[in-house]
């Protein structure tokens, strides 16, 4: 399993992956720089303003979309010149190949989230924010956003195995991601829409006693439930795919 993941990373790291990884912090950084502290009506909110300014576009659109691009990238070279054939004729099970690709994707999304954190921090330094960095709250946001991508990455991995091109999985991704813009405004539908979860879990709100910014029930049923469904469907499809 470890060897399989190493191999995946070996193939992936030569695929301009750093370009994709750096796009996230780049956006967060630019977004953070646009923050205007003159609107701050209370002292000590500078960090939150930075977080809120970057969060919307980043969590709502960027994170779901880029996780799809990553999934397509990790499958691209397999589709190109018979990579699947070569890989699956080795003594590996398809389930393990699927899992190792999935785990690697989630690891990269985590790296993107950490770089996002670093981007926020550096914006604060540049802007001369003197308040202490609200680490626990921002950790919550960064890790929560990561957990919320668990189902989305599973779905995109499935679609990327299914389709050879980047465009087709991206289209599906867009079709599901754009409505999240509306869904987050709805108290009735927002909590049940998987693509709205990255935003909900990165947005600072809710009961401070919960582990993340959404209630446990929502986390388990919506994020957990859609993860199980998407992962299983992708896994089953991959088991049956004729190479």
């Amino acid at each position: 399993m470890l060897a399989l993941m190493q191999t995946e990373w070996f193939k992936l790291r030569k695929s301009k992956i750093s370009f994709i990884i750096l796009a996230g912090p780049f956006i967060a950084f630019l977004g953070g720089l646009t923050v205007d502290f003159t609107e701050a009506d209370a002292p000590g909110v500078e960090w939150y303003l930075i977080l809120l300014a970057t969060n919307l576009a980043y969590a709502l659109l960027f994170l779901p979309l880029i996780s799809g691009v990553l999934a397509s990238t990790i499958c691209r070279y397999e589709h190109q010149e018979g990579g699947w054939k070569q890989l699956l004729a080795l003594p590996v099970t398809r389930g393990k190949v699927f899992l190792s690709k999935y785990l690697l994707l989630m690891a990269i999304v985590l790296v993107i989230q950490l770089l996002y954190l670093a981007a926020l921090y550096s914006v604060g330094l540049i802007k001369g924010v003197t308040e202490p960095f609200p680490l626990t709250i921002i950790w919550k946001s960064v890790l929560g956003g990561w957990v919320a991508t668990l189902p989305l990455v599973a779905l995109q991995l499935w679609l990327s195995i299914l389709f050879k091109s980047y465009a087709a999985p991206l289209t599906v991704n867009v079709v599901f991601t754009l409505p999240a813009v509306l869904a987050i405004n709805s108290e009735r539908f927002g909590p049940y829409y998987p693509w709205a979860q990255p935003f909900s879990m990165m947005y600072i709100s809710g009961d401070p006693n919960d582990l993340f910014f959404v209630p446990w029930e929502q986390l388990l049923t919506v994020v957990g439930g859609s993860f199980v469904i998407f992962y299983l469907m992708g896994w089953v499809y991959f088991q049956r795919k004729a190479i």
């Binding site: 193939k11 070279y77 190109q80 010149e81 990579g83 054939k85 070569q86 890989l87 080795l90």
Partner: peptide, 18 residues
């Protein structure tokens, strides 16, 4: 079957690890 973006050595390395 091969990975066009890798060298011959690297291509073999992907299988060797597994």
């Amino acid at each position: 079957s091969y990975y066009p973006h890798l060298t011959a050595y690297e291509n073999l390395e992907t299988s060797r690890k597994i």
